[in-house]
């Protein structure tokens, strides 16, 4: 249990680092896919209990350290999206392309909605997406395209991340 948690934490931390370094080379209008968010959705959907949410919380705090976002913002976003994904756990069959793409699409929109709500509450302190701006829609599309590939890669790591009965 602890081993799985630590491996998930390590993997998502590496994805955050890749997101902030290498992915800059494939950015579209300075927008990069949110790999860590997609990985949290995958782990939360496939794992029972709090594994996805708690890893999301811990890696979110870590991400806040290197981001200009207020401390706690990514922790909240990743925990709550992990919780949403966990609610759907076992209710869908994940195929190779369509469902991962849909998960990437919906998770990014959910993130945008959470940010909009938080930006209203903490006015001026938190940035939110412009509904008609290109950043949101490029990120939504990018995450939807990247999710099937990432889910496929994570699927091959299931034995390290997901409990046996849920694989």
């Amino acid at each position: 249990m602890l081993r799985r948690w630590l491996l998930s934490f390590g993997l998502i931390s590496i994805l955050i680092v890749i997101q902030s370094t290498w992915l800059d080379h494939i950015a579209i209008y300075s927008v990069v896919p949110d790999l860590s968010l997609l990985a949290i959705v995958y782990i939360s959907f496939k794992s029972p209990g709090l594994q996805g949410q708690s890893v999301g919380f811990a890696t979110g705090l870590l991400q806040d350290g290197i981001s200009a976002a207020p401390f706690g913002l990514n922790a909240f976003i990743k925990t709550s999206i992990g919780w949403l994904a966990n609610l759907l756990s076992g209710k869908f069959y994940i195929d190779k392309i369509l469902m991962p793409a849909l998960f990437g699409f919906v998770a990014t929109l959910a993130k945008a909605i959470y940010l909009a709500i938080l930006a209203t509450i903490f006015s001026g302190k938190i940035l939110s997406y412009d509904l008609f701006g290109r950043v949101l829609w490029i990120e939504v599309a990018y995450n939807a395209v990247v999710a099937p590939v990432l889910f496929l890669l994570l699927n091959s790591l299931d034995r390290f991340l997901i409990p046996l009965e849920k694989r």
Binding site: Q53, L73, A75
Partner: peptide
């Protein structure tokens, strides 16, 4: 219920952190 409570607790902690940091 346990999962929801756990998630809610983590969200509450991150919200408190957010309140403090902002």
């Amino acid at each position: 219920t346990r999962r929801t409570m756990g998630s809610a607790l983590l969200m509450a902690v991150s919200l408190i952190t957010l309140v403090v940091s902002t």
